[in-house]
């Protein structure tokens, strides 16, 4: 217990009003900034789709159906993503096949060079 008090010597008397004030104001400001962002991004989509609604109304089509068609749901997005992923995976199979083809070309090395061949030895002596 003594060791614990030594490591954590709690003294609440040092906490003043200004400290509590900072904590309360700080937390409130964090909330405020994210709340404002929440407000802005709740209003913006409505504002953006308002023009579309008007357009559909003018065209005389069923607003609801057309509007709903414009807003793609999560499941549809997931289905499209899966289709793209499957397509790309198929492409990868082709790529793997190409990678497995062995390289045919010979690379140069002085160790297998013809000009250093023993048959040519006499020619050098001459």
């Amino acid at each position: 217990m003594t060791a614990f008090v030594q490591i954590l010597p709690v003294d609440l008397s040092v906490i003043g009003r200004e400290h509590i004030g900072l904590a309360v104001i700080g937390y409130s400001v964090v909330f405020l900034s994210l709340f404002l962002l929440f407000l802005v991004f709740t209003i913006i989509p409505k504002f953006l789709t308002r023009n579309l609604r008007k357009k559909f109304q003018k065209e005389g089509g069923e607003e609801k159906t057309a509007f709903a068609g414009n807003m793609i749901q999560g499941e549809v997005s997931a289905a499209i993503a899966t289709a793209i992923s499957l397509y790309l995976e198929e492409l990868h199979d082709e790529e793997t096949a190409i990678l497995t083809i062995k390289k045919v070309g010979k690379s140069y090395s002085p160790w297998n060079s013809k000009i250093y061949n023993v048959i040519n030895f006499n020619r050098f002596q001459r």
């Binding site: 954590l8 010597p9 709690v10 003294d11 609440l12 040092v14 906490i15 400290h19 509590i20 900072l22 904590a23 309360v24 700080g26 937390y27 964090v30 909330f31 900034s33 994210l34 709340f35 962002l37 929440f38 991004f41 709740t42």
Partner: peptide, 26 residues
């Protein structure tokens, strides 16, 4: 889903409570 932004704000509670806690530890 902008309302979830508020959860990001709420989870900062530890910062300000620990600030008070650290003051009390000197």
């Amino acid at each position: 889903n902008p309302k979830l932004m508020l959860l990001g704000a709420a989870a900062q509670l530890g910062i300000f409570l620990t600030y008070i806690g650290a003051l009390s530890l000197g």
